[in-house]
């Protein structure tokens, strides 16, 4: 069982967390083109190696930013979200 560190609750088991997609995938405005909209909805960086992702801690319902390696699973940092969600 891997522990992820929720910025609000501290280290908790990985099963309490839900993957929320790439960090920086901002929701487009109402005037967005179909391409921008489907980019936002479906298309992913899916990076091998270091990735910046949004995760939710299901216990406290807070979303946060996690930097981790998608090959080694090492987590380098977790942050509360600022303006970068």
């Amino acid at each position: 069982m891997q522990l992820f560190t929720c910025p609000f609750c501290g280290p908790r088991p990985e099963t309490e967390f839900h993957f929320g997609g790439d960090a920086g995938n901002a929701r487009p405005g109402a005037e967005a083109s179909a391409t921008d909209w489907t980019d936002y909805l479906f298309f992913r960086h899916n990076r091998k190696g270091v990735a910046r992702e949004i995760w939710m801690h299901l216990s406290c319902r807070e979303a946060f930013l996690m930097e981790r390696d998608t090959v080694t699973h090492a987590v380098t940092a977790t942050h509360a979200l600022g303006s970068e969600a």
Binding site: M1, E14, F17, N46
Partner: peptide, 13 residues
Amino acid sequence: DRVPSYGQRGNLP
């Protein structure tokens, strides 16, 4: 597994 990964090994949960 619920964690996106390229690890080719798998998590215990």
